[in-house]
């Protein structure tokens, strides 16, 4: 596996798992409007994961579904940050969202500069949606940045961002849930 494919898979895994975690707020976000907005962000992240898996699958001779759902939990390259189940802690959820979007902007920016025009185009497309995620994260940041709970969550979560290849026990539970349909019905696609 080339470094580039590895990198794409890393981002795809982050987006899939974060999308999954964020979607756990659907129906229970602090207010109805936020429920719609945050669910939509979660949906976008999963869409990005799909596009990136498809891209990696081309290179690896497999399919997006196989990459997303047929690997063993240890093979996922997602950051420790996105694995955490944070419901019902909204302050921590927003802290993660803010940390993630800030870091994500940088690496998507790098992909946009890729010599591979197709990959650069995909990154640009993803970035146009991420711009709204950043806007959303920023406005929540501005609203919460003086809150002690939010500050504590930022400090606590920040170091987890770059930790990869380690899996939390809650990730195993998420993996079970995420892959259950696929495992129970051969050939099920998302």
């Amino acid at each position: 596996m080339t470094d580039q494919v590895q990198k794409i898979l890393e981002i795809a895994d982050d987006e899939l798992i974060l999308g999954w975690r964020n979607s756990e707020w659907t129906g229970i976000a602090p207010l109805l409007e936020e429920d719609v907005a945050f669910s939509s962000i979660a949906q976008n992240e999963i869409g990005h994961a799909r596009a990136l898996y498809e891209r990696a699958a081309q290179e690896l001779g497999t399919t997006a579904d196989e990459l997303a759902f047929d690997r063993s939990p240890e093979e996922y390259r997602c950051s420790r940050l996105v694995q955490l189940r944070l419901v019902p802690d909204w302050a921590a959820t927003i802290a993660r969202h803010y940390l993630y979007e800030t870091a994500d902007e940088e690496r998507i920016g790098v992909l946009k500069q890729s010599e591979d025009a197709e990959l650069a185009g995909l990154a640009a497309k993803i970035d146009r949606e991420e711009a709204y995620h950043r806007m959303h994260a920023q406005m929540w940041f501005e609203r919460l940045h003086d809150e002690p709970r939010f500050k504590a969550a930022l400090d606590e979560l920040q170091p987890l961002l770059d930790v990869r290849g380690e899996h939390t026990p809650e990730f195993a539970t998420l993996w079970e849930e995420m892959t259950s349909v696929r495992r129970s019905l051969a050939g099920a696609t998302w």
Binding site: S40, Y132, M139
Partner: peptide, 17 residues
């Protein structure tokens, strides 16, 4: 209509909905 704490949130929520 949307319920939001300020204009910025209102714009974001309107955009989403």
């Amino acid at each position: 209509s949307v319920e939001a704490p300020n204009e910025e949130f209102a714009e974001a929520y309107a955009r989403e909905q």
